[in-house]
Design a protein around this nucleic acid. Structure first.
Lengths: 193, 193
DNA sequence: GCTGTTGTTGAATGATCATTCAAGTACTTT
DNA sequence: AAAGTACTTGAATGATCATTCAACAACAGC
């Protein structure tokens, strides 16, 4: 038995960057070869086909995002302060020039929803995991008395998630830190009122 | 001189429906032929190329949306009531199965921003026209005393536009009228507070 | 160090794509 | 109704795409 010569996580992160830059449909196998350093045959051997690579990339992306989620909240006195961290980081991400300027899951949702069900399922799982994180966060805030129960944790989460979707889309037209920070601050206020 | 045999507006609306269903990149010339009833040669004669058709379609879409904008507000006692009309219509559009479930300008923004500048300019114009409409609306509301001046019309507009972007994206994962109506109602409240 | 197995390579394949253009067709003008 | 002009048609073109596969290379067990 001979082991594969490439680092799967590195390859997937490179693929994510390639997909994010051009969108899935516009990213050709040649682009992916250049980005990952893998030859077509190896990609097909490891991921079956382009869609398989997309699915694996989406799963890797979810793993990476879930892993860093708690970092925004640890070391903060209040839950809302952690949420502010998260939103401010989202703003700087949006104005970056690297692949982090786009949320891969959201981009895939916009480009590929109502197309192939296998991909849709993974996107759905990613976004659901993300929402669950926020629900837990708002439950913490409720328990700590930082917010009242005029709205449930789930309701607040849905408003927040909707707001972040909108923030990221808005950033495509207005990628300035000032405006985005103001919008993010307002969003935080609305969602925690 | 012989006049063209097709109705340009009808063709463009058919093209919009085709683009919206599959996304620009996935919509082939054959799809467009089927949707518009025009043969490739005619399309190229009238719009130069696929990108030219996209630009013309985006312009037609903007014209159509601008034309119906004031309808939501005329016949309403208050500006905020008109805004509620607009948002509720957006919700039903999102849950529809026809092409109106997607905002063509927003879809194009997500799929094509940072690609060709000619297309970007038209998308930018569309979204700007749309924002200007809301700015005017909020100025009316301010003058009528429906809202206070704790935030400017432009600030409120940016929050609203961001919220609508988010609402439409959220609808891709959760296309139920109940949830979307709740989110839209909350958005209206936040933006008019 | 030899052999079998498994990963890697990249040119070849066939499908699909946007685009073109020469032939055909219908309208307008006279 | 004849002639000219302009629009329509759809098969042909060349580029690009995802995918395959046979030759090649490297590792493991013996």
């Amino acid at each position: 038995m001979r082991s594969a010569e490439f680092d799967k996580e590195k390859v997937l992160r490179a693929a994510i960057a390639a997909f994010v830059n051009k969108g899935y449909n516009k990213t050709s196998m040649q682009d992916l070869k250049k980005a990952t350093g893998l030859h077509p045959g190896s990609i097909y051997c490891a991921f079956e086909n382009k869609e398989g690579l997309l699915i694996a990339a989406l799963e890797q992306y979810n793993k990476d995002r879930c892993g860093e989620f708690s970092d925004y909240f640890s070391g903060e006195k209040t839950v809302l302060a952690g949420l502010k961290n998260y939103l401010m980081k989202t703003v700087t991400n949006c104005t970056s020039s690297g692949p982090e300027r786009v949320c891969f899951s959201q981009q895939a949702l916009s480009e590929l929803s109502e197309q192939t069900s296998a991909v849709e399922a993974v996107i759905s799982k990613n976004l659901n995991d993300w929402q669950q994180g926020f629900i837990w966060i708002f439950e913490q805030a409720l328990a700590a008395g930082e917010i009242d129960n005029s709205r449930t944790a789930k309701q607040r989460t849905q408003s927040l998630v909707m707001g972040i979707y909108g923030l990221r889309t808005f950033a495509h037209t207005h990628p300035t830190v000032d405006v985005l920070e103001e919008l993010a601050t307002q969003l935080l206020e609305d969602v925690s009122r």
